[in-house]
Design a protein around this nucleic acid. Structure first.
Lengths: 232, 232
DNA sequence: CAGTCATAAATTGTCAACAATTTAAGCGTT
DNA sequence: AACGCTTAAATTGTTGACAATTTATGACTG
């Protein structure tokens, strides 16, 4: 029951049973990877043609993307791919800080011993990967998210899990991709992950929350300077 | 710029420009008021007929309700009105605690002096209303939400504001409605609101967050016992 | 009589045409 | 040349019909 096996966390294997959902996934990737440029206008007929479906399910896909905040939409005026700015990312990181802080607290309360064991193993795995590849970007990025995802799951709070995994992480992925590779920080992050895991293992709710919040607000400070440097 | 005049917080005046949105509002009210019973199955054709529109926009309305978590939906299997249980409400209140705690912190940092003044005035208004009507239920409920809404706005965090006002408060309203009138607690709540407002006025971020979280977790303790008594 | 398979009904998913609205272009006026 | 109005094009919103899928029904078999 504990073994989410690998790096990738939640993408389903068997493809979605409906056109709208499959198209939603496609467009989502295209936006995160930057193939659909930020701020570009979405024209329903064009996209429907491009993805080979009719406007009905495409519309549903767009609405789902709006829900995830990858697309912004104005009645009768159409929709555009979102444009990330510092202001918005600050909102995201602040929300994430409070939500993941709570998740860590709940995880410290509720995580099973087996899960804790498995979490620790995950971090060993990360440590190995770091010393091997020494800064291999992609792996670490997803590894980082993997850790946070586990904590969110362990919180057993469906609402929080859904918001983190469904919305916030997507936007952060997109931001990372758009900002190119930024400094590795892998070693520091791993160290902090270890401390958080230790606090959880000790069932110290207060400390787990505190450390998680520090970890995230620290990450924000770095991302912030990068974003600001970029736009000046 | 400060004067949101009255109790009701954000319902737009001029009705929505699209059928789907208007129907969304209608169904939302019907669910919150219990006219559409919890757990009842939603059949698209039936509802479309009932609201006098075609299935297209109705479908969009349903998707929006799913986004708000008032409806749960399974591909090919249809959708049902959500059924509130203690488990889910606990998730909601925990999420709310962390998010509103952060909102209070940000409010203490960012709220303008005029807004603070206005917030204080709102509380005076509430105090007057309480001593007048001494436990007039509806007013106090909305008054309570009004206070929390103001703090969320003052946080200037769009993501948090949207989640609180768009999702969490709706579910709490629904829960309150379904649970009938529960004990007033108006005096206690007002007192706590005052302390929170004072902390914000003092620009004490730490304390504002702490008090807000206590306030909400306290409210949850009460709601929890009510819910448990009901189902046993 | 329980269980299972095939069939029929009900319901959701998808499509293409039509209506309403917004955006752009063209024309005339000042 | 700039502004506003009228008209045309483009785009979104809405509709009803059709296809695919699930759920219910009932006959058949062990």
């Amino acid at each position: 029951m504990t073994g989410t096996p690998s790096i990738v966390n939640a993408e389903e294997v068997h493809e979605s049973p409906t056109l709208a959902l499959r198209t939603f996934d496609s467009i989502k990737s295209d936006i995160i990877n930057g193939e659909l440029a930020q701020g570009s206008k979405i024209v329903e007929s064009d996209l429907a043609l491009k993805y080979g479906i009719s406007r009905g399910p495409l519309r549903e896909a767009i609405h789902r993307l709006e829900r995830i905040k990858l697309i912004v939409r104005i009645p009768h005026a159409g929709s555009r791919v979102i444009t990330l700015d510092t202001r918005m990312m600050e909102d995201i990181y602040n929300a994430r800080e409070s939500l993941e802080g709570m998740a860590a607290r709940l995880a410290a309360r509720l995580m099973s011993d087996a899960e804790i064991e498995s979490l620790s193993a995950l971090l060993d795995q990360h440590a190995a990967a770091i010393s091997e590849t020494d800064g291999k970007a992609y792996f670490q990025r997803e590894g980082d998210i993997d850790f946070h995802y586990r904590v969110a799951v362990a919180s057993q709070n469906q609402w929080i899990l859904e918001k983190l995994n469904g919305e916030l992480y997507q936007l952060i992925r997109m931001c990372r991709h758009q900002s190119g590779q930024f400094p590795s920080r892998a070693q520091t992050a791993l160290e902090q992950h270890r401390q958080i895991a230790a606090a959880i293992a000790r069932r110290d709710e207060e400390l787990a929350e505190l450390l998680m919040r520090r970890h995230i607000s620290g990450a924000w400070e770095i991302v912030k300077t990068i974003l600001e440097d970029q736009n000046d």
